[in-house]
């Protein structure tokens, strides 16, 4: 979780929110949350399930941005 927040701190183009899934079931359902932590990139353009090192999240972001 803190990784996403660190990225938000690093870049003015990144925003990162922790969503407590049981308090916001509608949001979690919309993003098909099956396991936690799940990181959703740009409203579903990319998804990463589980804790992952920085390089994994960056790779997933690149895929989501199609870079």
């Amino acid at each position: 979780m803190v990784l996403a927040h660190r990225m938000a701190l690093e870049s003015p183009l990144v925003t990162a929110e922790m969503v407590e899934a049981s308090e916001f079931p509608a949001v979690a359902a919309r993003h098909h949350v099956s396991g936690v932590p799940q990181t959703t990139i740009n409203d579903g353009a990319g998804t990463l399930v589980g804790s992952a090192p920085e390089s994994y999240l960056i790779a997933e972001i690149k895929k989501a941005l199609k870079q």
Binding site: A4, M7, E10, A21, V27, V36, I41
Partner: peptide
């Protein structure tokens, strides 16, 4: 200070488009 790895900082400094991350967790 984000404390991120140099490669991550380099990638983020070249971003052209906004990125919104949502991390779903349970208590």
């Amino acid at each position: 200070d984000s404390g991120l790895e140099p490669a991550t900082r380099a990638f983020l400094s070249n971003l052209q488009k906004p990125i919104h991350l949502q991390v779903f967790v349970t208590p």
